[in-house]
Design a protein around this nucleic acid. Structure first.
Lengths: 358, 358
DNA sequence: ACGGTCCACTAAACCGGTTTGCTAAACCGC
DNA sequence: GCGGTTTAGCAAACCGGTTTAGTGGACCGT
């Protein structure tokens, strides 16, 4: 008994059906080029032989892989369990499926993003959360593959999908200010790798600018000492808030840069005996599905996460067609505040200056 | 100005470096076969030319794609937002990355799973939640690709990863019984496509057997009328519980077949003015990360979701090597109950028979 | 000076499809 | 019955790598 009888190839089918390889190919791809009877005969033989065209050979010949890649600096296991990412990927998947494209996740291979990019067989790449000056991106730029940058400031002529982070953050802070809050803690997302703190491409930097713009209006400063960072997960949020608390901070409101972290803060606050929103107001970012199911439901900044994914695919696809289209290529989405139950009037006991008549 | 200057191929590098294509290939793959100086020279030329071996051509020649596929009957956008699936995928990703493999999701292409399988260029497939008699699986079987079935009963000689669904379910029901509960509602996962209700491969059927085995011991029957189905999501859970309530059911405890659904039930119960666990006990399944963050924390059946993913990859990988290994090939994981805050003694008002002395 | 080993490298086949250019035959109108 | 068009299918080149078998030269011992 042989090991796994070799799969039938196009040549086998051709021989068996008494036609050329080309004819078999036509029978599947452009049947109108062949006599209808012949097509039927060839297809018959093919199915008898359990023939299925080798996708790899086909990709090579067509020079299309029918796959688009999602590039991220984090390992896949953190990616998949990150609900923001899941939502974004769902958007990508929807648009990709519609266009008949598969999607492939590209993440550091044995620590190297560049190596991972080289190994990936895709027609285009959606890079999320990577600054324009990340080595992975420069590599991408040289590779000649069409690509789109998500959530990172970019060179002016690069395709990109952005979101009004600063405006959203500002709206969040203004909401809290209006409720009388003056003591904040900001829970930010740590940079993908060390040494990017000054990087203006970093989301945390952009949102922080928004928070600060709002507080500056009323003469309150958000110092670096009230900013704590962590990974964008529930655990990250828990740890970050505990760190803030232990370092002596006693905020009346927390500005979290992701809903996942906000949920973590919610949890941590409860552990510390604080009632939300009575003792502490919390505001998230993203407006994920879960945000409406927490207790209390989360006030948060909405961004069109799923739509971003869909838009990215569209940009990639049209990038493939018209090389240098005159289109703007950069698309910025709006954000807006969604007020739910996790924010309230500042508690009286702590409110030093109750001067504004809200 | 040309459009996108063609990428350098191995032939270009060979010509430029004055060597054969083979030498270039060796320089990258088996440098020890070449003089060290030559290797350096070739690599130099290659990097000058921004040469990067075409992954597709390489796949074809090696007849390996370095990719493993995850096959599912649901669309990707529902997959990604399903936390159980995310957790499982994270496991797969971890093990795959370690082995230097990429992962690709294979889901129905324009409605056809078979077509999707044909288009997928992978070295092996992990099929989750598909019964052994699903057309996609029979196709897979014929294709000659190594594959592993997850969460579905299978032919005896097929590679598979299972979990003790029945035992876990039984433990859950026994816990509630011990707390005095007698009126249950079961919230199950609807089958992937209609007409599989009788399918013993269907998770819901297996878990239901477990619940029933436990209640049968005390002479209580779980009729089909107290079983409501829905998609395995929070929304699914909310809708299912509302349906049960509207149809007049007034359970003291809910057995949900997924944590996501259990969270939905939690939410729905709150909307109906029921306190958990005082008025209603809820028990989930999976023990996802979020289960510990809900309010109250969720009592649930733990299954090693991530480990299942890792084990699946291992099974695929060794399946590639030793074709017909004498190994059992089927691996069943244990489950166990994790008691947290969402279950409590049955409320006295409704407890008809307070005869057991718990 | 000769056969044997190694070393460093090459030529060519191969992976399994797609696509281009061409031809032979059928069909066409007049 | 002749030039022109259509139809049906074929041969061969091609996609861009890997891999096998083989070759020429240096080195070596006798």
């Amino acid at each position: 008994m042989e090991q796994s009888t070799r799969r039938a190839t196009i040549a086998d089918v051709a021989r068996e059906a008494g036609v050329s390889k080309a004819a078999v190919s036509f029978a599947f791809n452009t049947p109108e080029r062949l006599n209808a009877d012949t097509v039927l005969r060839i297809r018959g033989v093919a199915s008898d032989l359990d023939y299925r065209p080798d996708p790899v050979a086909r990709m090579l010949a067509q020079r299309r892989t029918w796959t688009i890649g999602i590039l991220t600096p984090q390992a896949l296991d953190v990616i998949f369990t990150n609900p923001y990412f899941a939502e974004f990927s769902a958007g990508v998947a929807t648009a990709a499926e519609e266009a008949g494209m598969a999607i492939q996740f590209i993440s550091p291979l044995h620590g190297s993003l560049v190596r991972a990019v080289d190994r990936a067989s895709v027609d285009g790449i959606i890079a999320v959360g990577l600054g324009a000056e990340h080595p992975g991106i420069s590599h991408l730029r040289r590779s000649g593959l069409p690509y789109v940058l998500i959530d990172s400031t970019t060179l002016p002529d690069e395709r990109a999908i952005l979101v009004d982070d600063e405006g959203g953050a500002r709206a969040a802070a203004e909401h809290l200010i209006q409720l009388g809050h003056r003591q904040f803690v900001v829970v930010g997302i740590e940079p993908p790798s060390a040494g990017h703190e000054g990087d203006s491409a970093w989301v945390t930097a952009r949102r922080l600018r928004g928070y600060r713009a709002a507080t500056a209006d009323i003469g309150v400063a958000i110092g670096d000492d009230v900013v704590v960072l962590g990974p964008a997960s529930m655990d990250g949020g828990i740890a970050a808030f505990h760190r803030a608390w232990e370092s002596g901070l006693r905020p009346t409101a927390v500005l979290a840069m992701s809903d996942a972290m906000a949920i973590g803060v919610l949890r941590a606050a409860r552990e510390l005996g604080l009632r939300v929103p009575t003792d502490l107001s919390i505001i998230g970012f993203d407006n994920l599905d879960i945000a409406q199911y927490t207790d209390p439901p989360l006030t948060t900044v909405h961004q069109p996460t799923r739509e971003k994914g869909e838009a990215a695919v569209r940009l990639i696809l049209e990038g493939g067609r018209t090389r240098n289209s005159p289109e703007p290529a950069q698309h910025q989405f709006d954000t807006h505040l969604v007020v739910r139950g996790s924010t309230a009037q500042v508690p009286h006991v702590r409110q030093e200056v109750a001067d504004d008549g809200t």
